[in-house]
Amino acid sequence: MSIEVDHISYTYMAHTSLENKALEDVSFRVDKGEFVALIGHTGSGKSTLAEHLNGLLHPDEGCVRVDGVDLKGKDRAAKEARGKVGMVFQYPEHQLFAETIYEDIAFGPRNQGKSPEEVDAAVRSAMAFVDLDYDVFASRSPFQLSGGQMRRVAIAGVVAMEPDYLIMDEPSAGLDPVSRDNIFSQLMKIFHKRQMGVILITHSMEEAAQYADRLLVMSGGKLHLDGPARDIFTHDRETLEKLSMDVPESVKLADELRQQGLSLKGTPLTEAELIRAIERAKGWKAC
């Protein structure tokens, strides 16, 4: 059970003066139960790639298969396969459309043929998932919200559909720190419970390091690196910097501490790991 990206290329506005090769021979596979972060400089092709994964765009060359089914088909199997992939778009305002937040989130589950009671339950739990108070927000318009509130409605709408594969295009841009942490911890819960395949597109190295086991690094429409997040953040710092990427803040702080003489071990990918590494280096405790 997986999303397979098989040698795909894609060009915007081919044969015009604005021709733009956005993807070039990209291949990888993400299995159900995997949590992958996709990073890369602005304009590297991440969103273009994401839109191929739910069949919104089709490759000029190569193909994308979900659970073995080519998304390009016009038959029922292809439609079903596309339906297994939920997508949180980079710009939430492009995703929202209904008059109230309730109706916006209810749209997906209703389309899946759920009963009114099931739809209602799905909306309520999705709103709780993203920390939006039902009584305050359900009847409000999704267009008269703060940036971060709008982002949360867009995430709720996709979560309510319980997709097998979840693609999130910069879901935390504009979220405040605590909502971001809460939403990710909820996400990790359903990820473990339902064994979804998750692809997280992000410009935050901290997020990629904290949540993903595997990292895909794009640059100029090509896939440059594909491997365990810890390996890449340990060994490929120079390459990352050359590609406008970086290592997480905790890795930088650890390096500075080492330069000042603290004998700190390993590559601490998160704040918690850094704290433990400092305690161990200082001999304070290591529980």
Binding site: G40, H41, T42, G174, M205, S244, D246
Partner: peptide
């Protein structure tokens, strides 16, 4: 107003 929210580390 959040000028770096959509930017990569270098852009930021």
């Amino acid at each position: 107003d959040e000028p770096t929210a959509m930017l990569d580390p270098k852009g930021r």
